[in-house]
Design a protein around this nucleic acid. Structure first.
Length: 598
RNA sequence: UGCCCGAUGGUGUAACGGUAGCACAGCAGACUCUGAAUCUGCUUGUCAUGGUUCAAAUCCAUGUCGGGCAGCCA
């Protein structure tokens, strides 16, 4: 184990997560299989942005490498050029680095740039070496040679069946398929045709290379699966070098073998592919110990989607502003929303790794961020729905700068000064003309404490001709300032406030779940589009913040006291004109109390 | 009605033949210059039926329910 190289933090002192895959790997290490070495990989297809489900896989694969002193390769699983783009490659690199930085980055295995056959994309610099991720497309030459070996061994053949006929011949799950009429071509003819496929002599779909296994197998994936197809499409990484591309099943196991992967971990839907994974590797004359595939259940989260295809649709149809919309379950969306990598990693630890297809509660993700942000974020006062309070017995023009604690969870965070004056804003919800049961904030005649300031009493209301509340008039107890003579008086509620003349105006964006039903994806649900939450985004443009927030830098996180955790938007916020995203609310006992009486 | 996989409180998980535990959520209380945090306590569970065993969540059988597989997608 080489945990000492993995930085510090709770993850380094706690026991690593235990689960069935962990046990398998641990037993292999113990028994000296693969010479005690552990090599995993995270193999996304660059056809979309990474989401929280990928984070689970990243944590699993990198966590194993980290614990056993192995390596985890970042590999683009890019065998289908029609759907893949460099933009996605770039986002994947960024998201993986962001997620594992300070935790498992020493175990991230990249390769030296320039050794690939394609158009290199630079990942990052480490020392003097320029590194880039692995690409399955870098192995197209080797994979092609392996295909030739299979053909020469009589284990693969060129099939001229049309896509429709291929499907027909395959049969159905409960009915065996039939042999292709081209199944018994000679090795020479197969080699010749395969070479001519590669040379570009045939149009898309004209022929395929197929494994010769068993058309009557109960496992569909063993019914002579297609290994290579013709696609006259330019590839984002290999350019125009190829017009035949290997299928996932053929490329993946071989990529694993080529990279020296020991444990190839994927999701449950590939379980039925495992016999094919093994068949391909065992059919070739491969000298080294073969990698093995293990499957776990992918993550499903309530009230959101995890399918890249559907997330892409939300982006394309402009339902959201982009892949990094803070409502998206993407890593970039969560990052923009204000989630920390630590909180996402902790979440992945909390959910565990099993073969059970469950539905995880959003509350667990929220718990993970709150827990992390509570420890780390500076507090500040912000009023989202302001109502003015004029303090009758406070001198006009006077300003006091009161001391406020930056983070009660972290004494080292220090203090700051917040200005107080005759006119302040408080939260509209902190006042009720006719107090509800158990409401102990401000109402006519009642006292509340103003955080870090005085005890305030509401004496009257100012309304317009239609009876709308315009402002409150109040008096304060001059001796009750924090630290003052009567400061110790027991007052049930403390509320936050912002001095009106000093307030910074800001836009604040409140986010809610994207969908109104727990499983927007459900087959019988009428389509996820019909379950979009119209209130998933609420933009508040008239918020008032304490002046220290005016200079917030993009990405900076705060707890707005009594409201929640907020993060200055990385795209739209500028010092002087801040825009904040709400990461998560604080738990709110008052909201629960209200639900009881309703 | 083919094959593969799975099933433990509301949710996610642990228990590897020997006291069903943890976390989230929920509820109640303590504390509180954040109705937050923190602390204390509580409710709720082994899919069913048989079998093996001194002993079964765990092993076996059958059934039920759920998921996956019929792309020249991954």
């Amino acid at each position: 184990m080489s945990q000492e190289t993995a930085g510090s933090g709770p993850e380094n002192t706690q026991a690593p997560p235990r689960h069935f895959i962990h046990e398998i790997v641990a037993s292999h290490v113990q028994s000296g299989r693969y010479a005690g070495r552990v090599g995993t990989r995270f193999p996304p297809e660059p056809n979309g942005y990474l989401h929280i489900g990928h984070a689970k896989s990243i944590c699993l694969n990198f966590g194993l490498a980290r614990e056993f002193g192995g390596t985890c390769n970042l590999r683009m699983d890019d065998t289908n050029p029609a759907r893949e783009e460099v933009e996605y490659v770039e986002s994947i690199i960024q998201d993986v680095n962001w997620l594992i930085q300070g935790w498992a980055d020493p175990f991230l295995n990249l390769k030296q740039a320039g050794t690939s056959s394609g158009i290199g994309l630079l990942a990052k610099d480490k020392g003097n070496r320029t590194l880039e991720p692995f690409y399955a497309s870098d192995y197209f030459g080797q994979i092609y040679d392996f295909a030739l070996e299979l053909i020469r061994k009589g284990k693969a053949y060129i099939c001229d069946l049309s896509p429709e006929d291929t499907e027909r011949y395959r049969g159905t799950p409960d009915r065996p398929g039939q042999d292709s009429p081209f199944r018994d071509r000679s090795v020479e003819e197969n080699v010749d045709l395969f070479q001519r496929m590669k040379a570009g002599e045939f149009v898309d779909g004209a022929r395929t290379l197929r494994a010769k296994i068993d058309m009557s197998s109960p496992n569909i994936w063993l019914r002579d699966p297609v290994l290579y197809r013709i696609r006259h499409v330019e590839h984002h990484h290999t350019g125009k070098a190829w017009c035949v591309y290997p299928m996932y099943d053929f490329a993946h196991c071989l990529s694993d073998y080529i990279e020296g992967i020991t444990h190839s971990i994927c999701t449950l839907e590939f379980e039925v592919h495992r016999p094919l994974y093994d068949w391909i590797l065992e059919s070739l004359s491969l000298p080294r110990e073969l990698p093995k595939q293990y499957e776990f259940a992918r993550l499903s989260l309530g009230y959101t989607l995890m399918s890249k295809r559907k997330l892409l649709q939300l982006v394309q149809e402009k339902t959201v502003i982009g892949w990094d919309d803070p409502r998206m379950p993407t890593i970039s969306g969560l990052r923009r929303r204000g989630y920390t990598p630590e909180s996402i990693r902790h979440f992945c630890e909390l959910i565990g790794v099993t073969k059970y297809n469950g539905l995880t509660d959003m509350s667990l993700l929220e718990f993970a961020v709150r827990e992390d942000l509570n420890k780390k974020s500076h507090r500040a006062m912000a009023v989202l729905h302001p109502i003015k309070v004029i303090i009758d017995n406070y001198p006009e023009g006077e300003v006091e700068w009161l001391e406020a604690v930056n983070n009660p969870e972290d004494p080292a965070a220090g203090h700051r000064k917040v200005p107080f004056s005759k006119e302040i804003y408080i939260e509209r919800d902190d006042f009720m003309e006719l107090p509800a049961k158990k409401f102990y904030r401000l109402f006519p005649g009642n006292e509340v404490r103003l955080r870090y300031a005085y005890i305030l009493k509401c004496v009257s209301m100012e309304k317009d001709s239609e009876g709308n509340l315009l402002a409150l008039r109040a008096t304060l107890d001059p001796d009750s300032k924090s630290g003052g003579a009567t400061a110790g008086r027991k007052i049930k509620a403390t509320i936050h406030w912002v001095s009106a003349p000093h307030a910074t105006r800001a836009e604040v964006r409140l986010y809610d779940r994207l969908f109104t039903v727990e499983e927007p994806d459900a087959a019988d649900g009428g389509g996820y589009a019909s379950h979009l939450n119209p209130k998933s985004l609420e933009v508040l443009s008239q918020c008032v913040l304490e002046p220290s927030l005016a200079s917030a830098s993009p990405g900076q996180r705060f707890q707005f006291e009594r409201l929640g955790y907020f993060c200055a938007d990385t795209k739209d916020s500028t010092p002087g004109a801040p825009v904040f995203n709400r990461t998560a609310t604080l738990r709110d006992g008052w909201v629960k109390e209200q639900h009881k009486t309703v």
